[in-house]
Design a protein around this nucleic acid. Sequence first.
DNA 1: GCGGGCTGTCGGGAAAACCCCGACGCCTTA
DNA 2: TAAGGCGTCGGGGTTTTCCCGACAGCCCGC
Lengths: 221, 221
Amino acid sequence: MAETRILIVDDHAILRAGLRLLLDAQPDLAVVGEAGDALHGVDLARALQPDVVLLDITMPGQGGLDTLPAMRRAVPHARILMLTMHDDEGYLRRALQAGAAGYVLKKAADSELITAVRAVARGEVYVHSALTRELLRAILPDAAPAPATDPWSALSDRERAVLTRVALGHTAAEVADVLGLSAKTVETYRARGMEKLGLRTRAALVRFALARGLLNDTPPD
Amino acid sequence: MAETRILIVDDHAILRAGLRLLLDAQPDLAVVGEAGDALHGVDLARALQPDVVLLDITMPGQGGLDTLPAMRRAVPHARILMLTMHDDEGYLRRALQAGAAGYVLKKAADSELITAVRAVARGEVYVHSALTRELLRAILPDAAPAPATDPWSALSDRERAVLTRVALGHTAAEVADVLGLSAKTVETYRARGMEKLGLRTRAALVRFALARGLLNDTPPD
DNA sequence: GCGGGCTGTCGGGAAAACCCCGACGCCTTA
DNA sequence: TAAGGCGTCGGGGTTTTCCCGACAGCCCGC
């Protein structure tokens, strides 16, 4: 079997160089390209049609998560391995849902990275060992009782809209204003939502929102 | 002249491996040790007495900036080169004030890193080119006014401690509790800090904090 | 088809938090 | 020594939250 052809997309040039040296030292692996940002990454992927794409989750401009769909369209047959600093189950879940083939922490050992590349190249799904438990919980739900889902998605639209804004520090009156509601109504959504999430203080709400990256996007209506 | 002996302190194993490969490929450079956190880094430095220490600024637990003094005591003759993702002049200034010999961004090219290592080994001070202007302003300040500083670093310690916690959604009473103060005092810090930052609402404070990534680390005391 | 749960919407009233103002002692710096 | 920054607190009025209750749709199952 031919070498596994790899494309690296990461904004840190030093890390890219390190990865290239590391991977090229393996007889079965070959780095065929590097990109420093998401846009060039997708272009290069389209041109090179690599077998595996190493994609950094956090990059200036468009992050890796947002790039995933475009990357899959550019190289439909490629396996995409997310490279990240975040050992966060929220990121993991979103990455896998978006079609990533694996998830490796930057703090992992180099041997683990090589293992991961080979695994996804074989068509397997690779997830950093410390996160495997989360993976199982996220993968099984179709068969097992599905209600153990993310409590966040169990909220109503209004509740989500209000909670993200409150987590961002907006006051009930402000939220009421942008949503065109009474402050009292907003209060009800906040209370119900926090109740459903089992959160008692605003600080807990903020932590919850941070952990899910809810504060990076524009809040939903 | 003998090889320059290098110690790498960074929590990302992959990056360490990459740096080692990169640097060991140079005939005049030799990586003599690696550490994944600050404490082991200082111990190793004491034992190995390297010529140059590559020190990551952001690490779990004790960060590189806080480690600098201990590192200098451990290896007084060594030159310490800060390695970081942050192209932030505040970090740069603090690093140089604390006695770092150089400051390189992780997004820099590998050739630049090698240049930087050789420069500091020769006794020079190396700063990433994009930050040189800032460096000059920081070094010259006695002559020229350097008021364009990051407003965040212009705050007092108490103000920073309080503001990050408030941005995390904690109430004044809660913050007062963990800091061992009166809620009124906490209120004063919050007000003064927000005044200095030109922020009027908590939401603006949260956005400010998010933009600076202040909500990812443990708040300072 | 009817009770019941979920959602969307609001209000009252007490409690808590916040905001503005002022104050005092301790330092450092000019 | 005067000035200004910092750390510390309180008073008092205003705002916001918090806890309770309310009511009208809607859909769902029995």
